[in-house]
C-alpha cells in the first residue's frame, strides 16, 4: 500500500478504499427518503462466516453479521 504526504486523508487514517467507498455509499443511502430508503438499506447488509486457516488448521470462526442492525434502524 502506498502512503505518504500525497495520500488521501482516509488512507492516512488507516482505511482501505473499499471501506471508504462503502462508508460513503452508506451515507448516501442514509440520506434517501422512504420508500427508497428501506429498499436501499437492504443492500447495506453484510453476512458471512469467516475462518482463518494457518498451516493446514482452521482457526476461530467469526460470523460477520450486519443485518440485525440494519433491521432495527
Amino acid at each position: 500500500m502506498s502512503s505518504g504526504a500525497a495520500s488521501a486523508y482516509w488512507r492516512v487514517a488507516g482505511m482501505s478504499y473499499l471501506k471508504y467507498s462503502n462508508l460513503c455509499a452508506d451515507m448516501v443511502r442514509a440520506a434517501l427518503k422512504e420508500p427508497a430508503k428501506s429498499a436501499a438499506l437492504k443492500r447495506e447488509t453484510i453476512f458471512f462466516r469467516g475462518t482463518k486457516w494457518a498451516e493446514g488448521k482452521p482457526g476461530e470462526t467469526v460470523l460477520t453479521d450486519f443485518t440485525e442492525h440494519i433491521g432495527s434502524k
Binding site: F48, G50, T51, K52, W53, A54, G56, P58, L63
Partner: peptide, 9 residues
Amino acid sequence: SVDFVADQA
C-alpha cells in the same frame, strides 16, 4: 494452502 474460508454468504 488454505488461508481463509468464507461461507454462508
